[in-house]
């Protein structure tokens, strides 16, 4: 075992040992180290403090730090596992792991449920879905009459809200995504399979004695 933790942790608060992170996630040690190359570049893009703030996250997503986006904000909140207003390297790896092609299907369903449960009540409520639909329409410059939005919501809740109590619980969501598997497409990033070839420079910065694949 090398001195990766002791060196990197000085510059990167909350930095965790790549070997431990690999054991807790769908990534190999080499993939964790390759992700560190990506993390270093994102976390130094606005303030070079070794942490990713919301502005840096938005800059990495949109190449535009000023672009406010409901969905990017929600993803940031979920990645900010320790609720510190910033994403540290451990948060980054553990959160991205859910998007790995090999991550458990149940983890993807859980994450997507949390994503759409904007206020964290344990239910996806109609008002939340309406808020997200309106945000999407604004983002894409599409105009839909309020009646049309209500028709879409009626159809969605007729299919997903099996007990018709006006909100989607976890078990209804599990059934709904089973019937509509395309809804989980956003939960898998094929890029994560090739992360070591996308960021090959990790080899030069590796501080573990042996690269475990």
């Amino acid at each position: 075992m090398g001195c990766f933790h002791s060196t990197a942790s000085k510059q990167f608060p909350g930095h965790e040992d790549p070997v431990i992170l690999a054991s807790q996630t769908a990534f190999s040690v080499s993939e964790v180290e390759a992700l560190f190359e990506l993390y270093k570049s994102i976390s130094s893009s606005v303030i070079d403090d070794g942490l990713i703030n919301k502005e840096e996250f938005q800059l990495a997503l949109f190449k535009n730090r000023k672009k406010e986006n409901l969905f990017a904000n929600r993803i940031f909140e979920l990645f900010d596992v320790k609720k510190k207003g910033v994403i540290d390297f451990g948060d980054f790896v553990k959160s991205l792991s859910v998007f790995h092609p090999n991550a458990p299907h149940e983890d993807k369903i859980d994450f997507s449920f949390k994503l759409y449960d904007l206020d964290g009540t344990g239910f996806i409520e109609r008002q939340e879905v309406k808020q997200m639909l309106i945000a999407l329409l604004c983002e894409s410059g599409m105009k839909l009459a309020d009646e049309t939005v209500e028709i879409i919501l009626d159809k969605t809740f007729l299919e997903a809200d099996v007990n018709q109590d006006g909100k989607i619980d976890k078990s209804e969501w599990q059934n709904f995504v089973r019937q509509n598997p395309s809804l989980l497409k956003i939960m898998t990033l094929p890029y994560l399979r090739d992360i070591t070839t996308t960021f090959p420079s990790f080899v030069f910065h590796s501080e573990v004695d042996e690269i475990v694949t």
Partner: peptide, 26 residues
């Protein structure tokens, strides 16, 4: 023809803010 109404989540999942692949573009 009868218009096909997508469900809300299909529409929402097209948001750019949910497309994390852009994180990997250098």
């Amino acid at each position: 023809a009868t218009p096909v109404i997508m469900n809300a989540f299909e529409l929402i999942s097209t948001s750019q803010g949910l497309n994390l692949s852009s994180l990997f573009e250098k």
